[in-house]
Nucleic acid binder design. Structure first.
Length: 668
DNA sequence: AAATGAAACGTTTTT
DNA sequence: CGTTTCATTT
C-alpha cells in the first residue's frame, strides 16, 4: 500500500479530508511521496481517477509521480488521472476543443512583436522609450503577474513612461491581432484561452493537486480558481520560491490560510535527504529571510556526516579545474554528481574543463538544439504544413532561396495564398486560380525573353507563380523542391514518416549543403574538406535526433507543440549534471558543487538593481545547497582573468558561517 | 532589396 | 564570444 511508507506527518497530510489543504514541505521532506500517497488515498476512498488533476512544474515530475503510483495501481487507473504542467494540461484541453493550437517559440513571437514595434515611431522625449524586446518581456510578465489592465499595472511600476503608454498599448493590441491572424498561440495564451473557455464551459475536478505551489503565479492562481475544484491540495515551500521573474506570486502560498477560511495547514519537517551539517548550513542562511510559517527542520537520516567544504581559488578557471579534478578522482557515479551555478555563463567553463579530463556531462535546457538553423528549418517546414497561415515560417523557409529576402518571400506567400483562394498549400500544389493578377505586363513579359531554363520549367510545371515578377530560375527551383515535398506527404499521417521524407528530400539536402559550406568556409574563403564533412555529419545527427523524437507521436501538430512545450526537458546520456539553480529544483544528488559564489554573481546584483530581491537570491542559495545528499562543496574565485575583474565572496558564505568577516578583510 | 562585412553589444532564471 | 545590428556595396 502506498501509504505504508509514509511517516506520521506525511500520512496526516496525505489523508486530510477534502477541502483547502496546504502542505508546507521543506526541502527533502518527502514531498513527492506525500503527493503520491495523497492520490493513493483519494483512489482508495473511491474517487474516480478522472476527477483528479495533478499539476506539476515539469512534465517529468508528473511522469515520475504517475510511475510511482503504478507500483500500487493498475496502469489503466493511473493513466486516467489528468496530469502535467499547467501549460501541457491547458494545451490538451484546448486541443480537445479542436481549436487550432499553433504554439510558437517565444523567440518567434518576439520577432513578430518587434516588427510591429518598429512600425511605430517614438518621438523624442527626454526619456528613452523601452526597447521592443524589453516591452515584450514586460508584457509577458504582466500577463503572468496581474489581473489588472496592462496600463494600470504598467504605470504603477513605471509612472515616468506615461507619455508612451498609449503607444505601448497600440503595439500590444496590434500584436494580439496579428497573432490571431497567423493562428499563433504563446505559452501565456494557453492559460488565458483556457480561463476563457472555463467561463462558459466547466471542467470539473474533485481535487486539484498543485506541486511547487510557491512558484505558481497570479495567472495560474486565477486558472485554479476558474476550475472551481471541490478540493485543493497544494504543496510547496516558500523558502524555495525562485520564479518571481516569471510572476510567481509568493502571496499564493503566504495568504492561503486567509483566502480560504476553511484551510488546513500541514508541515513536513523531517528531512530525509541531507546530512545534518548540510541542513544546518542551509538553515543558517535562510533564517536571514522573514519566516512566513514557522518551521524547524529535523534530520531524518543518519548518514556519515561530511562537513560542507569551502574552496577558494585565485582564478576562475583554477576553480573549474580543481572541481573537475575532484570529480575525476571521486568514486561517485557521474550521474550522482551535480555542478550548480546561479548564471548559465558559468556552464561553459565547467563543461570545458570537464571535457579536458574526459568526463562526460549533460546540460539541461537543450536550447542549443532547437536554436540551430538545421532544426529550425525542419520545424518550420512542418509548422507551415500544419498551419498554412504561418507566414513567418514561410519567410524563414524561403529566405534560403538564392536572391530571396523577406520582401520577395512575402510577395510569394501572398501570391500563393491568392492562387489557392486562401489556402497556401492548395496554392502551392493545386492552384484553383491559374494566373496572377497582372500589375505590370511589361516587366512580366520581359522575364521570359532571356531565360530559357525558366521557360522550360514553366512549361513542365505550369505553375502560375512562375509568372511572378520576382520569379527566376533559382528561386523557382527552390519552389519546386517545396512543392515536391509537400505533394509527397499529402496522404502521410505519421510524424516520423513525414520527417524521414523531409530529411531525405532535395529541399532539405539543399539546406544541408548550404549550411555545411557556410560552416566549412575559412577566413580566406576556401572550403576545408574535414570541416565540411564534420558539419554535414553534425547536421544529419540533429536531424536524426528529431526523427527519433517524432516516433513517439501520432499527429504532426502534437509533435510540433510538444517540441516547444518540452524543449527544455530534453536531456540525453550519462554524465555529470551541469545545472542552473533553477533547473536543479526538485532534484537531488550525492555530491553537489555550488560554484562561483562571488558577490555580484551569486547574489546576482545586476538583477537586484532591476527589481530583484536579495530574499529571492537567498532562496536560490537555499535551493542549491539542499540538493546535496552527502557532500556539499562551495567554491569561488577571487579573480577572472578573461574579464579582468576581482571578486569578493558571496555574502551567503558569511551568513553560512563558512567565512568570517574578519578572516576575509586580511585576504582581500 | 539582398548580400556582405564591420561594429557594437550585453551577458538571468523557465513553461 | 557569440549574436545582433548597422553600413556599405551590388
Amino acid at each position: 500500500m502506498a501509504l505504508n511508507t509514509l511517516n506520521a506527518e506525511q500520512l496526516k497530510a496525505a489523508t486530510a479530508s477534502l477541502g483547502h489543504n496546504l502542505v508546507i514541505a521543506s526541502a527533502g521532506t518527502g514531498k513527492t511521496s506525500t503527493i503520491v500517497g495523497r492520490i493513493a488515498h483519494l483512489l482508495y476512498s473511491g474517487l474516480d481517477p478522472k476527477q483528479i488533476l495533478l499539476l506539476t512544474f515539469t512534465n517529468k515530475a508528473a511522469g515520475e509521480m504517475l510511475a510511482r503510483l503504478e507500483r500500487y495501481f493498475p496502469k489503466e487507473i493511473v493513466s486516467q488521472i489528468e496530469s502535467g504542467t499547467f501549460h501541457a494540461v491547458c494545451y490538451r484541453w484546448l486541443k480537445a476543443r479542436d481549436s487550432k493550437v499553433a504554439l510558437k517559440q517565444p523567440s518567434e513571437l518576439k520577432t513578430l512583436f518587434k516588427s510591429i514595434y518598429e512600425e511605430f515611431a517614438f518621438s523624442d522625449y527626454e526619456l528613452q522609450a523601452f526597447s521592443a524586446l524589453y516591452l515584450y518581456e514586460l508584457y509577458s510578465l504582466y500577463q503572468n503577474a496581474s489581473i489588472d489592465t496592462f496600463d494600470k499595472w504598467f504605470l504603477s511600476s513605471y509612472p515616468d513612461h506615461e507619455c508612451f503608454v498609449d503607444k505601448y498599448l497600440l503595439i500590444i493590441e496590434k500584436f494580439e491581432e496579428e497573432k490571431r491572424e497567423y493562428g499563433f498561440v504563446s505559452f501565456n495564451d494557453l492559460l488565458l484561452n483556457t480561463i476563457e473557455f472555463l467561463n462558459t464551459e466547466n471542467i470539473y475536478f474533485e481535487e486539484i493537486l498543485v506541486d511547487e505551489y510557491q512558484d505558481t503565479n497570479t495567472l495560474q492562481g486565477v486558472l485554479i480558481d476558474a476550475m472551481r475544484p471541490k478540493s485543493l491540495f497544494c504543496v510547496g515551500d516558500y523558502d524555495q520560491s525562485i520564479y518571481a521573474f516569471n510572476g510567481a506570486n509568493i502571496e499564493n502560498i503566504s495568504t492561503f490560510t486567509t483566502r480560504y477560511k476553511d484551510a488546513s495547514l500541514f508541515s513536513l519537517i523531517t528531512n530525509y535527504r541531507s546530512t545534518a551539517s548540510i541542513l544546518e548550513l542551509a538553515n543558517r542562511v535562510i533564517e536571514h529571510n522573514p519566516r512566513i510559517y514557522p518551521k524547524q527542520l529535523k534530520v531524518g537520516c543518519d548518514k556519515q556526516d561530511v562537513p560542507p567544504r569551502l574552496m577558494i581559488y585565485n582564478e576562475l578557471f583554477e576553480q573549474y579545474h580543481a572541481i573537475s579534478h575532484a570529480i575525476w578522482s571521486s568514486h561517485v557515479p557521474h550521474n550522482d554528481v551535480a555542478v550548480i551555478f546561479r548564471n548559465n555563463s558559468s556552464a561553459d567553463g565547467v563543461e570545458a574543463t570537464l571535457r579536458e579530463l574526459g568526463i562526460p556531462c549533460k546540460r539541461k535546457g537543450g536550447t542549443s538544439f532547437f536554436d540551430t538553423k538545421e532544426v529550425k528549418f525542419l520545424l518550420d517546414v512542418l509548422s507551415l504544413y500544419s498551419n498554412p497561415k504561418d507566414m513567418m515560417a514561410f519567410l524563414h523557409i524561403f529566405e534560403y532561396a538564392k536572391g530571396v529576402g523577406p520582401a520577395v518571400a512575402k510577395e510569394f506567400f501572398l501570391s500563393l495564398v491568392y492562387l489557392g483562394e486562401g489556402n497556401l498549400i492548395k496554392g502551392i500544389l493545386d492552384p484553383s486560380i491559374k494566373e496572377l493578377p497582372k500589375k505590370n505586363p511589361m516587366t512580366t513579359n520581359s522575364l521570359f525573353e532571356g531565360d530559357d531554363s525558366l521557360t522550360k520549367d514553366f512549361k513542365k510545371s505550369n505553375h502560375p507563380l512562375y509568372s511572378h515578377q520576382k520569379a527566376d530560375s533559382d528561386n523557382m527551383k527552390f519552389f519546386e523542391y517545396i512543392k515536391e515535398y509537400y505533394s509527397q506527404i499529402q496522404k502521410e499521417k505519421s510524424p516520423s514518416k513525414i520527417i524521414a521524407k523531409l530529411i531525405k528530400s532535395p529541399l532539405y539536402e539543399s539546406i544541408v549543403e548550404l549550411l555545411s559550406l557556410q560552416r566549412s568556409r575559412l577566413k580566406n574563403g576556401e572550403i576545408e574538406e574535414n570541416r565540411y564533412t564534420g558539419a554535414r555529419e553534425r547536421i544529419l545527427q540533429k536531424a536524426m535526433l528529431l526523427y527519433e523524437l517524432s516516433k513517439n507521436y501520432k499527429e504532426i501538430d502534437r509533435f510540433l507543440n510538444a517540441m516547444i512545450l518540452g524543449a527544455g526537458e530534453l536531456s540525453q546520456g550519462d554524465g555529470v549534471n551541469l545545472l542552473t539553480v533553477h533547473a536543479s529544483k526538485g532534484l537531488e544528488f550525492m555530491d553537489v558543487y555550488v560554484v562561483d559564489l562571488m558577490d555580484g554573481r551569486f547574489p546576482n546584483t545586476k538583477l537586484m538593481s532591476r527589481g530583484g530581491e536579495i530574499e529571492e537570491e537567498r532562496r536560490l542559495f537555499y535551493v542549491a545547497v539542499t540538493r546535496a545528499k552527502e557532500k556539499l562543496n562551495l567554491s569561488f574565485a577571487t579573480y577572472d582573468k578573461v574579464k579582468k575583474t576581482e571578486f569578493k565572496p558571496s555574502q551567503f558564505l558569511f551568513e553560512a558561517k563558512m567565512l568570517k568577516e574578519s578572516d576575509y578583510s586580511l585576504g582581500a
